[in-house]
Design a protein around this nucleic acid. Structure first.
Lengths: 255, 255
DNA sequence: CGGGGGTTTGACGAACGTCAATCGGGGTGG
DNA sequence: CCACCCCGATTGACGTTCGTCAAACCCCCG
């Protein structure tokens, strides 16, 4: 259960959202102003907290800090993670005003989250409702592009799970995370912070914990990466990209 | 390369689209009228023909007959199929007016396809463009729901690939296809036609051809299904659902 | 000092892929 | 009408990848 946020100044936290949206399509000054409201209604969720439950209503919001994931559980307890959510990512949006979520979202670390309802015009998720399409420079267009980017990431994930080995999958994931974190200014040239346990990596990549562990060791042994606790260094990104057949998402450049 | 259609009356072919859209949300008589234009611009594609290429422009259309798939190839030739497209399914739609496709679409059988451009107002895919949102009973809402249903199917697929065995995956897929075909009136209580080679099934389920073959044999040996050429009979759907942990998509019932 | 979550290691087995050969049916040319 | 051929389905033998079980280890914290 998310709780009312502490009183630390939330303003700088919203910058990750701005960076991400701006990368999808340039933000006008007017839009920058409207997005300031994000800092006003923030919640904090503890690790393990449910941000959105499967089959429940969808509450559009942005992650300002911390990592989360979208997942589903099989009845026998097996877990599959669909996507890893990092700061700046959207949760609970849906292109249709469908009230139901097809996956649950869970905090993996302490997470600061901001409601986006003031931006969506209230009622339902997508702003393409007739009533809320007043503003041509609306941020609905940004959210549609965001949805496209996310679909691309889902397709990448399907390729990983269906046709790549544990070794390739792991390299591919590290490159994807580096790209996404760089987009929001949370990665430097070669390294980034990844606050995930090996259990989470296993449930994301469709592997066992033991096998993830051995795969990471192999990548380290071959001097392709360095990893200590939650700090990841991509020593040879080009080699990793060749192994994983990785290509970064293409952001459509139509302004 | 799709070619101009033959002159067989296309009218009955569009009924699959109507049935599918109507299941997502009731169609008004006015909308039924507008959808009649689908029969006017149809193309035929031969098996193996590219309906849409990765990175290419998106041309919104509907499949009126035949099966296709969305897929991506790794540079070493491995193939992963993201989704199987059956009659009534949409291709080339995107919630954003993004000109680029993140996967290619390929015909698996002879396919009859109808352009949906007369319905989307022309220019770009989604009808939620300011200029084309004239009609409140527009079919944009249907397409948004369709996108949500498709995302649910993608998530199901991720679970299959990441956390289910070959046996479970296969059972799950057969149940999904039965549900989708029933939606468009192309399945009876227990059986349906599935014009797919085992190679396609393998590339969809992330398995080798040999292993798909043995898995299907096991399902037959245990009298859970019957299969001869392209005809599938689900002998014990309840048992299959238990094996696969299957639950049909929930269509939001908000009118 | 003890405990708990996360990581690491080894031994073993099951699931799945690969290679290669065979089979079977429908189409095609002689 | 028959021989041939090609594609897809099937089978067997074998190897690899990955999962499971169980134990140790490590580090932080109480």
């Amino acid at each position: 259960m998310p709780m009312r946020a502490s009183l630390t100044s939330p303003a700088p936290l919203t910058s990750v959202v701005l960076r991400r949206l701006n990368a999808l399509k340039a933000l006008s000054p007017a839009q920058l102003n409207r997005l300031e409201v994000l800092g006003e209604r923030t919640d904090v969720a503890a690790p393990g907290a449910m941000l959105q439950s499967e089959g429940g209503p969808m509450r559009p919001s942005f992650i300002l800090a911390g990592w989360a994931c979208r997942q589903r559980l099989l009845t026998d307890g097996r877990r599959q993670i669909f996507s890893l959510l990092i700061p700046g990512d959207a949760v609970g949006f849906c292109v249709a005003p469908s009230p139901l979520s097809s996956a649950s979202a869970v905090a993996l670390t302490r997470v600061v989250i901001a409601s986006a309802e003031p931006l969506t015009g209230g009622a339902t998720a997508s702003a393409s409702h007739p009533s809320s399409a007043q503003d041509p420079s609306s941020f609905a267009e940004h959210m549609r592009r965001s949805a496209c980017l996310e679909e691309g990431l889902l397709l990448d994930h399907i390729v990983r799970l269906g046709r790549q080995t544990a070794y390739e999958r792991t390299a591919h994931l590290l490159l994807e995370l580096h790209w996404r974190l760089a987009l929001i200014g949370q990665a430097d040239n070669r390294s980034f912070v990844m606050p995930l346990t090996q259990e989470v990596l296993a449930d994301f990549l469709g592997l066992s914990i033991v096998h993830i562990n051995r795969t990471l060791q192999q990548l380290r042994r071959e001097r392709l990466i360095e990893m200590s606790s939650s700090h990841v260094v991509l020593i040879d990104a080009a080699q990793l990209a060749a192994i994983a057949d990785y290509q970064p998402p293409l952001l459509s450049r139509t302004t």
